[in-house]
Design a binder for these strands. Structure first.
Ligand SMILES: [Zn+2]
Ligand SMILES: [Zn+2]
Ligand SMILES: [Zn+2]
Ligand SMILES: [Zn+2]
Lengths: 129, 129
DNA sequence: AATTATAATGCAATAATTTGCAGTTGCAAT
DNA sequence: ATTGCAACTGCAAATTATTGCATTATAATT
């Protein structure tokens, strides 16, 4: 992957701004600095960065995919399907599973921002079953 | 959730046809029987069925989301990002993780068709690092 | 500095998905 | 059977995402 200008700006944007930005949000912020950029360029740059492991892409149940810079400490999320609450979980348990899979299936998992959907405790109390 | 006609047809379609159909493929098959159906109705019916746990929705790295009927035996997949090979894995290890999460975070995971991306052994041999 | 190969971009067309809103239908309670 | 409510649907528009192809920028090689 080349050191293209859009790559650099996307990474800087994702590191500076809040996490979990949509492609359109990233596109908007980039246009502030680099007005001529095309949207397909942003989508393709995000795809490249995701494939290279520098950003994560996730469907968190919003309308659009969200992107996040992948730093040293990885994390994952639980998303409540009822109230949309987002819980952050650390990497340890997840990596244990990934290691198991790597041993059992000889497959190197690179998923770096896992989203699991379900129901939080409050929503289960509020509406059991 | 009501017993709407579109719900029934979608479930029948997913059970009869091959797995991992896109919304457009489902839409196409439904139109064969029920020509007047609108595509947004199909999307919303799929969303309902997914929320009810009767079908799974997954991004498997194709252009579009894929849907599958959820039967008694659940399964999950590993998808190679290089060669697009799809490996099916069984539920045991995954449910163990989900149980851990449920204990540690008091969060009931309902994800029923987990997709993990990575690199298969052949691709790692072919292009190490 | 010129050449070359490949990655990255712009542009426009297309595809996939979501949404607002008005109207319809299924279902339960009178 | 009638009523009433909420779920479901159709339609059109908007949003989100992907793709083909010609052009440009980057980095390595000569
Ligand atoms: Zn995150
Ligand atoms: Zn909740
Ligand atoms: Zn499957
Ligand atoms: Zn592979």
């Amino acid at each position: 992957m080349r050191a293209s200008s859009v790559n650099q700006i996307i990474l800087k944007t994702l590191e500076q701004d809040q996490s979990h930005l949509t492609a359109q949000q990233i596109y908007g912020r980039i246009r502030d600095n680099l007005p001529a950029v095309n949207q397909s360029t942003v989508y393709r740059a995000l795809e490249r960065l995701a494939h290279a492991g520098q950003v994560s892409v996730s469907d968190m149940g919003l309308g659009a995919a969200v992107y996040e810079a992948v730093g040293g400490e990885q994390h994952h999320h639980l998303v409540c399907q009822e109230c949309n609450q987002v819980i952050t979980i650390d990497d340890a348990a997840i990596q244990a599973l990934f290691n198991d899979i790597e041993r059992q299936h000889d497959f190197q998992v690179v998923t770096n921002h896992l989203i699991l959907f379900g129901r939080c405790s409050a929503c289960r109390e509020r509406m059991p079953e």
